[in-house]
Design a protein around this nucleic acid. Sequence first.
DNA 1: CGCCGTGTTGACCAGTTTCAAGATTGGTGG
DNA 2: CCACCAATCTTGAAACTGGTCAACACGGCG
Lengths: 216, 216
Amino acid sequence: MFGAAVEAGEDARALQQIGTKLRVSRNKTIFNEGDPAEYSYKVVSGTVRLCKHMTDGRRQIAQFLFPGDFFSFADFGEHSFTAEAVTDVVLVSYAQRQVAQLCEERRSVNQRLLTFLSQRICAMQDHLILLGCQAAKGRIASFLLQLSEQTGSEEDQLFDVPMSRLDIADYLGLRIETVCRVLSEMKRMRVIDMLDVHQFELLDSDTLQALADGEE
Amino acid sequence: MFGAAVEAGEDARALQQIGTKLRVSRNKTIFNEGDPAEYSYKVVSGTVRLCKHMTDGRRQIAQFLFPGDFFSFADFGEHSFTAEAVTDVVLVSYAQRQVAQLCEERRSVNQRLLTFLSQRICAMQDHLILLGCQAAKGRIASFLLQLSEQTGSEEDQLFDVPMSRLDIADYLGLRIETVCRVLSEMKRMRVIDMLDVHQFELLDSDTLQALADGEE
DNA sequence: CGCCGTGTTGACCAGTTTCAAGATTGGTGG
DNA sequence: CCACCAATCTTGAAACTGGTCAACACGGCG
């Protein structure tokens, strides 16, 4: 156990060695789907979205990333999605060649990568269920709960919603108007409150949980 | 290049060494979500579905597997989904401990595992887009094209649809009646024909492709 | 032969989208 | 600092897709 902790620290340090900091401003593209994948990234601050753009203008957001999250570690050869900055962001980029070398040198890094990909697959399964089995209210309830867990401060029940309504809609497979309507209804029901477009307060997490579970 | 081919053969042989054949009959469970994950699998014959069952009886199918497909190589600790036999199937199971050992011994096996997980993530992204951006017709068109590519024989345009209408519905996030209706309409439009409930003929792949691309 | 599981079709309904019109916010230049 | 503009968000009404409920068809099997 102690050994593992030391190892984790060493892994992190080794990775830090090969990283380069960069800034990207709001709504700028970090890379496009199909670009040669030379780097992987970690979010230091801000929010990133990973998405695919359809020819007909529609868009599916596969994931939002927050400080501490890694991305593009599963793209070999070329990027399988587009990465864009939701807010101004600071990133660390890692040359994939060097990451691969780290994996060869340190078994623990390799293991960590496998675990990471495995977790990503689990998260995508949850997203599939959300899109395949949930109605609009349930999707939004699940999304808000997830957000409040990831970014919410301890006990004051406040949490940030850094992305636009359109981003939320494209993540949940809904239209922007539907997102607005459901949020308004949750506000009327006193389940949530919106201090600001991008700052929410969780008033009744039990009811929100019930909605996420598909109870009417 | 030649070295890589030799390597691939050796990897396959090494994996084969540690595999055990087993049979599972139609609609039987191979393992349940949450079960300790001691084995990974390859499909030898038949069709398998990976799914999650909700408390309210709904179900989301994340993937169908056909001969040659591997599954459960990303489940560490416990299975993240339930695996069931769509038809009678023959599987090969691999003890995860031994797979892990193979990965340590042979870098190429490890690399192969990473590539496999990466491809799985790409496939799940396509599934996300299907559920998030496509209407019923488009979902079914995409599904049929995928099936005909995977399992169709060369030029006769016939392909098997081994799963039930309910399975298709649960994979596509639709109801069984919607699946039936859309299939009937495609038949009326002479895009496909159904020789049997489980055997289809592709009559007009261009139109099917157009439907998959969301053109009305 | 009749039952049961599966598939198909119809009529109706609910939820979501679409289209359109305001309200609000944030940023820019005077 | 304010006025204005653009972008984003919100709300309403109507249209439509897909869901629900119900009946019926079909095929395999006891």
